[in-house]
Nucleic acid binder design. Structure first.
Lengths: 170, 170
DNA sequence: TTGGAGTGTCAACAAGGCTGACATAAAGTA
DNA sequence: TACTTTATGTCAGCCTTGTTGACACTCCAA
């Protein structure tokens, strides 16, 4: 990929960060970084019978206690069958409890049990340790940029879910 | 959320960007963004019989033509059985060709065929379109920060692979 | 009362990870 | 030369996690 033939490059110095080569490096950075991002929790989960899907369920239940199955479905973007399989094991293993809704008894509200919270903590700690080191090394401005780009990369519905979670955490 | 992005982070000496809440938002941003990142190529691949694993193989073969199986194995971080299954279909479908090494005849050097290059282009274009839009919206400084943080998030071996690819592209 | 929403579950299947075992050819080494 | 190691391929079998399709049940709302 010679820099001469990049059409975005010829428009001016300010757009050099949008060359195909830069974008390709961006994708590769995403690929390698995501590997690192999931590596630590994956190691913990491998010892249990759990996988990444369990981690995601535990994470978002912990983040939004009392959430319904349907809401979780929207956040995770999988089928109810797929989620249900995961929830079933988590419930029967006593990490998650499912409560019939008071207003609408069709809904199930999901909460972590103490054991669930403990595992959530363990997984989050592992993941956060890496992120914390990365953030600290990169510095506040880089972190702000990191989040700006990630947010711009999301699908609109995902961006909305993300924003809702962000608000609920403050 | 009082003032748009809650950037307690922009003050250089403050460590508020390292709070657990900020880190948690960082993980969630990674999760949602990665979904967006893979969504477009996934849609193209779904129509063919291929999956994300095929995309990755095609991408890195296209990026480093003539690479050996072992090298690809290290970059992708999967087992040879897993990679071989993917390569077998790509070769028999005429997207990738495998050549016995000249110096070391045990090695196989992998190249994309014209058809392989065409698919690689189609997939890259889809993925780059989203990345380009995100980069443009976020601006050069944010993109620089994005890459700094991602790089800091990688495992050292991945960072080395990433650096090698980065150099080879310039 | 009926339709539809929210949920759970069964069955079947596919992709793509994994391990283990074994085969082959080529290269390196004692 | 004989032995070992490396690079690769392949078979078999297992797991997780995604998918579709079908069906049942409960309950809300029109």
């Amino acid at each position: 990929m010679a820099d001469g033939r990049q059409n975005s490059a010829v428009r001016g110095d300010s757009l050099l960060f949008l060359t195909d080569e830069q974008l390709r490096q961006g994708s590769e950075a995403m690929f390698f970084a995501y590997r690192g991002f999931t590596a630590d929790p994956d190691r913990i989960l491998a010892d249990l019978t759990y996988g990444r899907a369990h981690h995601r369920a535990i994470h978002f239940i912990g983040r939004a206690p009392g959430t319904t199955v349907n809401n979780l479905l929207n956040i995770l973007g999988v089928t109810k069958q797929s989620l249900n399989r995961v929830l079933r094991t988590l419930i029967s293993d006593g990490l998650v409890k499912s409560q019939v809704g008071r207003n609408d008894k069709r809904e199930r509200h999901l909460h972590l049990t103490d054991a669930g919270r403990a595992l959530e903590q363990e997984l989050s700690d592992a993941q956060r340790a890496r992120l914390r080191a990365a953030f600290r090394d990169a510095g506040p401005e880089a972190v702000a940029g990191f989040r700006t780009v990630l947010e711009a990369m999301m699908d609109p519905e995902m961006r909305a879910s993300y924003a809702r979670l962000k608000e609920s955490g403050t």
